Amino acid sequence: MTENGITARDDGVFAVSGQVTFQTVPQFSGQTEKWLHSGNGRVTIDMQAVTLVDSAGLALMIEWLQLARTANREIGFTNIPGQMRDLIRVNGLEQVFQLD
């Protein structure tokens, strides 16, 4: 089982792992400081190790976009899981998350 969390990598990428759901979003929110105030350049959130998502996970991603904007940080998401891509499309947010 993959542990839920955010891990900083040397290349300025922050890897999200585990389940990003209604039950775990508070845990991820508590780890936002790891990347939000870690520097002043672009932040990349790698979601390759995410195993399960729901609408609360999408709400968290939107919150991260807003927090990054407030902190004058550019943010991008990579390796967005198919389940999350479906939620993004259903909610008409393809341009917000720059999905192809």
Rank of each mutant, 00 (worst) to 15 (best):
M1L: 12
M1T: 10
E3Y: 06
N4A: 15
N4H: 12
G5N: 01
G5D: 04
I6A: 06
A8F: 12
D10F: 07
D11V: 04
G12S: 00
G12H: 15
V13M: 09
A15H: 03
V16M: 06
V16I: 04
S17K: 02
Q19C: 07
Q19G: 05
Q19S: 12
T21C: 02
T21G: 02
T21M: 09
Q23Y: 10
V25I: 04
Q27A: 11
Q27P: 05
S29P: 06
S29R: 07
G30Q: 12
G30A: 07
G30M: 13
Q31G: 06
E33V: 15
K34H: 06
K34T: 15
K34P: 11
W35Q: 03
H37S: 15
H37M: 13
H37C: 13
S38M: 10
G39N: 12
N40M: 14
G41C: 06
G41T: 11
G41F: 03
G41P: 08
R42S: 09
V43R: 08
M47V: 11
A49Q: 01
V50M: 06
T51Y: 07
T51C: 05
L52N: 01
D54W: 01
S55I: 00
A56S: 15
A56N: 07
A56L: 08
G57Y: 05
L58T: 03
M61S: 14
I62V: 12
W64T: 02
L65D: 05
L67Y: 07
L67H: 14
T70P: 04
A71G: 08
N72W: 07
N72V: 10
E74C: 01
G76D: 14
F77K: 02
T78M: 02
N79C: 11
I80M: 00
I80W: 01
P81R: 06
G82K: 12
Q83S: 09
M84C: 08
R85Y: 08
I88T: 03
I88C: 00
I88D: 02
N91I: 00
N91T: 10
G92I: 03
G92P: 07
L93H: 00
E94A: 05
Q95H: 13
V96K: 05
V96E: 08
V96R: 10
V96S: 12
F97E: 05
F97I: 03
